[in-house]
Design a binder for these strands. Structure first.
Lengths: 247, 247
DNA sequence: CGTACGGTTGACGAGTGTCAAGGGTAGTGG
DNA sequence: CCACTACCCTTGACACTCGTCAACCGTACG
């Protein structure tokens, strides 16, 4: 694990910090709300960090002092119980934002965040970031937009968990990840590597490993999807797959 | 159904509009972010409306042109399929806000909103409200706070739907509503009327009417709760009830 | 080559859904 | 004021999906 903590790049007026200008999520993340000049302020309080697969960014219940952008990789947001039950309540892909100014509660982290692939983060200390939220309304507005989108997604997932069958859950999950990976090749077909193993898929869609495995097998036998190894998924007819995803 | 549409109260400088000053959710709703002077602007674009039980405010898929505050009563936020399956993704209590500036999608309503009790709303046209969001940063900040809280709640519900047993779901639901109704009498006991019938409870916690009914009976027989009629719930030992709610 | 880990498959059982009947309660009309 | 009706809730019997437990397979890695 390497730190590049507290490197602040003194800004040349009008010029954008190098590492922002070359950042993979410069425009798709929250940073897209900021001009080259404005982003200098954000860059000056940021530090980068890389996590290996399985490493934990924050642990449920810990004091959460940092926000972050995901610049590369995938992370899971999860909640667990003592008796071993676990629910993944969200996935974080590049350009997603971690944390929000929680006014209501203590600032304890409500969820554990863990890297499911190698993960690059751009981390901002809480205090500094909140000051910038006040200074730049466009930044706060973009955070609001993102939060609303996540709320809508969480509610779609409530429909999945509350009312869909095992088969529909798996089909919906595949379509969801395909969209997030932006790998749905133009012609209505998809092909990509699942970032999650069977256990994580199960914890995300409210099933067991075995049921997930069986349903994937079913979809294969029906010719809805094709697999190369356990992780690589292919589908040549997204519409057909979508018809298996329920409502 | 009565309208008091487009009554604008010309503001005396420094004075608060009458119907805001006497509003039950003046401080607990989004309006709490605004001073007496500022709220005059919001009042001038607002209109009141009362819905009877079962009436629909917006229908899933319809063009949603209004935002609103709930001033009295309870509404449900739901999503349904053609084949009759239905999931309630949220409940709206007094001081809750309806709608959000959805930047990403079309402005079609993603959910149906229906009154489950007589419902009083304070409605704002979308355009006017969004202008006020820009003019008053405190208003937008409060909307962000609220949205973050709802996101957290939605994710708690994902845990319920994904990993809890029928019994835990019912216990969690009771505790949740008790808290929302702010009727948990000081001494660790609660007593209140459920705003939802069994069918709506079932659609909210991802079960069937029959299973909900059976689990309530179970909790009664175990002495965890007591009931007077089908709607009024009593519990003299919240901690014990909480221990049945899972994690 | 052996071990470990993740994924698959099978047999079985538990928990919840489905179908059906019966009971309470509130509102309506005679 | 009482009976009738309609609706919601409860309860029972049974079916089925999905969870549990266990064995097996394939691949990666030492």
């Amino acid at each position: 694990m390497k730190y590049e903590a507290d490197q602040s790049f003194p800004a040349v007026a009008g010029a954008e910090p190098e590492r922002c200008a070359t950042c993979a999520v410069r425009n798709s993340s929250l940073c897209g709300a900021l001009s080259s000049n404005e982003i200098t302020d954000l860059n000056s309080i940021s530090r980068r960090k890389t996590l290996k697969t399985g490493q934990i960014f924050v642990l449920e219940g810990d004091r959460n002092k940092d926000f972050a952008n995901v610049t590369q990789g995938v992370a899971k947001l999860m909640r667990g119980s003592e008796d071993g039950r676990e629910q993944i309540v969200g996935l974080l892909f590049p350009s997603d934002f971690i944390g929000g100014p929680m006014s209501d509660a203590s600032d304890d982290a409500p969820y554990t965040i863990e890297a499911v692939t190698p993960l690059d983060l751009c981390i901002f200390p809480r205090d500094g970031f909140e000051k910038l939220l006040e200074r730049y309304p466009a930044l706060e507005r973009k955070l609001l937009d993102r939060t609303l989108s996540e709320l809508q997604l969480a509610r779609e997932w409530m429909v999945l968990l509350g009312r869909k069958t095992a088969q529909e859950r798996v089909a919906t999950f595949i379509l969801h990840v395909a969209e997030k990976m932006r790998n749905h090749g133009c012609g209505g077909h998809i092909g990509f590597d699942l970032p999650l193993g069977r256990a994580d898929i199960a914890d995300h869609i409210g099933l067991t490993i075995e049921t997930v495995s069986r349903q994937i097998t079913q979809l294969r036998k029906k010719g809805i999807i094709d697999m190369q190894g356990a992780r690589h998924i292919l589908s040549y007819d997204i519409e057909r797959l979508r018809s298996f995803a329920g409502f």
